[in-house]
């Protein structure tokens, strides 16, 4: 899919975000088209998480305009907002599981909120979601503090997918997963994209994911998008940071 698609599902225009005097994002423009998997890269501390959190409305912006599903969330009333929130799923960088709920309750929480279905179906869907992210049904009864780092990521993903959303925001989904798990994860994202037409906004440092799962890559630097395009565009770019990133030692090991 090409950038500048006529009907973007997320569109960000002239976004500026600052903490105190320090501008983290500075006049950023970004469009995400329906059904694509966008990989989002940038140096640590460049503001990737901040951009994601701003799009979903957790961080206040100084100026700019954000539309999701064609709805400007600043102008939307609360029922419109809820409508939008039901259609996206979010995986936070640190999981953000509810620590006093078990894995089962964590996954069922959003479903219970929005759908009136029987407990039997809830339990079955929970197990299905867990299976999709590669976890055994036994895990359902455990509490977040009893999970490994990678399992927390997977459960958080299962919760993000609980309502079969149209967009998922993933903040470093494969960090903390073993390479096999990360590979399965990329495969899962692909499957969901194909079958559900899922749009994926994925912040990642995982070159493998960028290579195998993403349709398009956007690069954040100095508070702006400094480059976007396919993996091949990235590899061909002459930008020094991009050359370092995609042609460094680690990148060569992955991409050859």
């Amino acid at each position: 899919m090409v950038p500048g698609n006529s009907n973007p599902i997320i569109s960000v225009n002239g976004l500026t975000v600052a903490f105190g005097q320090r501008h983290v994002l500075d006049g950023l423009d970004l469009d995400v088209s329906r059904g694509e998997i966008l990989g989002f890269v940038g140096a640590s501390g460049a503001g990737k998480s901040v951009l994601m959190r701003t799009i979903i409305g957790l961080v206040p912006k100084v100026s700019g305009n954000i539309e999701v599903f064609g709805i400007d969330l600043d102008a939307a009333d609360s029922s419109e907002r809820r409508g939008v929130e039901r259609r996206w799923g979010i995986l936070f960088q640190h999981g953000a599981l509810f620590s006093s709920l078990s894995v089962r309750q964590n996954i069922q929480f959003p479903i219970r909120e929005y759908l009136k279905v029987s407990d039997r179906l809830l339990d079955e869907i929970t197990i299905a979601k867990l299976a999709m992210v590669g976890l055994k049904p036994e895990v359902a009864e455990r509490f977040p503090s009893e999970l490994s780092g990678g399992m927390i990521k997977r459960v958080a993903l299962a919760r993000a997918l609980a309502l079969d959303p149209e967009i998922v925001f993933l903040d470093e989904p494969t960090s903390g997963l073993d390479p096999i798990g990360a590979g399965e994860f990329d495969e899962l994202v692909r499957t969901l994209q194909r079958t559900l037409g899922l749009t994926v906004f994925m912040v990642t440092h995982d070159l493998d994911s960028l290579h195998t799962a993403c349709d398009r890559i956007a690069v954040l630097g100095d508070g702006k998008i400094i480059a976007q395009g396919t993996m091949d565009d990235m590899l061909a770019s002459q930008h020094p940071w991009l050359r370092e990133y995609f042609h460094g030692k680690r990148a060569r090991a992955v991409l050859v």
Binding site: D123, I127, L196
Partner: peptide
């Protein structure tokens, strides 16, 4: 073909105990 992989995913689910 699109839906087959999704049904394939849920086919792995073991029935709840």
């Amino acid at each position: 073909a699109n839906y087959a992989s999704l049904v394939g995913e849920v086919r792995r689910v073991e029935p709840a105990g």
